[in-house]
């Protein structure tokens, strides 16, 4: 049984822009993986077609079916984690084995307050 996980230091899930995130990527696989990649990405959800952007990608050189690798990523200034009426911007770490045959994803929040930015709005839609 394949098992992937991402452990972030102190189980932190909220980060401020520019903060460095440290953690460990772990996997237990039945077969030797051809590639293991950790992506830092944001994607959108809502009324529009989804957009995805991979901000940083770490490729682990490994030939072991069970392994763990530390990582350290400095988060960018933006975009902030956001939810409005039409779109949400969601940040995530994603561990991918063999171009997506196995995947584990962990959402994080990026904003100065550590909270997702939300809007209070009038009911006007243009």
């Amino acid at each position: 049984m394949n098992n992937l996980s991402i452990e972030i230091q102190d189980n932190q899930t909220a980060f401020t822009p520019g903060e460095t995130m440290q953690g460990t990527a772990q996997w237990q696989l039945d077969d030797i993986p051809k590639s293991v990649t950790l992506n830092l990405l944001w994607y959108t959800q809502g009324k529009g077609t989804e957009d995805v952007s991979i901000v940083e990608s770490i490729h682990f050189d490994t030939y072991a079916p069970t392994d763990q690798k530390p990582f350290s990523i400095t988060l960018p200034n933006g975009p902030y984690s956001f939810s409005g009426k039409l779109l949400s911007i969601i940040w995530a770490l994603e561990l991918i084995v063999d171009k997506g045959s196995e995947c584990h994803r962990q959402e994080i929040t990026l904003s100065p307050t550590g909270q997702e930015i939300t809007i209070n709005t009038s009911s006007a839609t243009v």
């Binding site: 959108t44 957009d51 933006g78 975009p79 902030y80 956001f82 409005g84 911007i89 930015i117 809007i119």
Partner: peptide
């Protein structure tokens, strides 16, 4: 406490 400018292909 608001959202900054953001531009992706669809959003």
């Amino acid at each position: 406490d608001c959202m900054h400018s953001f531009q992706a292909k669809h959003n």
